[in-house]
Each structure stands twice: as C-alpha cells, then as structure tokens.
C-alpha cells in the first residue's frame, strides 16, 4: 500500500508503525513519530495499524537556538 512519510509517497508492506520504522531503517531513539497529526509514543508503535493513504511524520533533532 501507499502511505505518506514526511510528505513523500512511500510504498510499504508494513502493517504497523513499528514495522514501518524498521522497514525505513529509522533509528528508534532520538525521533518522534506522528500519524495523522497525532504523536504516537514508541510504546504504541506496535499497536498502531497503518492503512492506505495515512500521513506519517518523523522528526529528529536539528540545530537551533
């Protein structure tokens, strides 16, 4: 299925957020993930089911004042 990750279309076989993070080789620490504009704590990644067209945002640290 196709989903959106950081505004890019991604073809994925992942059914849960946890498997998407693994599929994209994202680090598990130092990031935060939101699905449909809601932050999903990492303790809930496994239980968070993905479906066609969902919008996922992944952020990490950046330089800033």
């Amino acid at each position: 299925m196709k989903i959106w990750v950081n505004s890019k279309e991604v073809e994925t076989a992942a059914v849960s957020l946890a498997s998407l993070v693994e599929e994209l080789s994202l680090p598990t620490q130092g990031i935060a993930v939101a699905v449909e504009n809601r932050m999903v704590p990492r303790t809930q990644w496994e239980a968070c089911a993905l479906s066609e067209g969902m919008r996922v945002v992944v952020v990490k640290a950046a330089c800033g004042g």
Binding site: V5, N6, S7, K8, V10, L24, L26, I31, A32, V57, V58, V59, K60, A61, A62, C63, G64, G65
Partner: peptide, 10 residues
C-alpha cells in the same frame, strides 16, 4: 542547550 526539530530525510 537548545535544540530544534526537523523532518527526517529518508
């Protein structure tokens, strides 16, 4: 020390 956030580049 302050840090900002940005979207991860895949």
């Amino acid at each position: 020390v302050t840090v900002a956030m940005k979207r991860v580049e895949l």
